[in-house]
Simulated assay, not measured.
Amino acid sequence: MSNHPVVKPYSNGYQAQVVDLILQIQQQEYNIPITKKDQPDLFNIENFYQTGKGNFWVAVYNDKVVGTISLLDIGNNQVALRKMFVDKEFRGRKYKTASLLLNNAIEWAKEHSIKAVYLGTTPQFLAAHRFYEKNGFESIDLEELPEHFPLLQVDRKFYYYSVS
């Protein structure tokens, strides 16, 4: 047993835990009116995220999924950072789960010649905004997103990270 979560590539055995974690954070913690039906990608992670220059990872602590992150290939050596969620108990300095996940994804991006990471988030996620900014992401306007960026209805704040 480890004292810290371990980041692993997603496999189907984690699907139920991934869906439960993400929905719990979206619905209970942030009162975002989003359902399983609104997120069909969660039921097809391998074909949706783990293709091209994309991937999906889980942070696991004692066989429990405590965090998720993905990079969605949007072409032109660019990716969209999606599904970054960390269980409330595993946020912050004690476990550094968010940093483990993000660093893993950025390393993957470097290894796969990705030039830029883009992300969209909701205005409510103020701690997430601070986290992304602290980790080198720059706030950008909607118009600065690449043509193939997958806009979500709830996204109102956008970020860019240069991988090189």
Rank of each mutant, 00 (worst) to 15 (best):
P5D: 10
P5I: 13
V6R: 15
V6L: 13
K8A: 08
P9A: 06
P9C: 04
P9S: 10
Y10T: 02
Y10H: 04
Y10Q: 05
S11Y: 06
S11W: 09
S11M: 03
N12R: 13
N12W: 06
G13W: 13
G13S: 09
G13Q: 15
G13T: 12
G13C: 11
Y14A: 03
Y14P: 05
Y14S: 04
Q15W: 10
Q17H: 10
Q17E: 15
V18T: 10
V18F: 13
V19Q: 14
V19C: 09
D20S: 11
D20A: 14
I22S: 00
I22V: 12
L23E: 11
Q24T: 13
I25G: 05
Q26N: 06
Q27L: 08
Q27A: 04
Q27T: 14
Q28I: 03
E29R: 14
E29C: 10
E29N: 14
E29A: 09
Y30K: 05
I32A: 07
I32K: 02
P33C: 03
P33E: 14
P33W: 04
I34W: 09
I34M: 13
I34V: 15
T35N: 01
K36E: 14
K36A: 12
K36F: 11
K36D: 09
K37H: 05
D38S: 15
D38V: 03
Q39G: 00
Q39T: 08
P40A: 06
D41I: 00
D41R: 00
D41T: 02
D41E: 14
D41L: 01
L42H: 07
F43E: 13
F43C: 01
N44P: 00
N44L: 02
I45W: 02
I45P: 07
E46P: 00
N47Q: 15
N47L: 00
F48E: 12
Y49E: 01
Q50F: 00
T51P: 01
G52C: 01
K53N: 11
K53R: 12
G54F: 04
G54R: 08
N55A: 06
V58P: 01
V58T: 03
V60T: 10
V60H: 02
V60F: 07
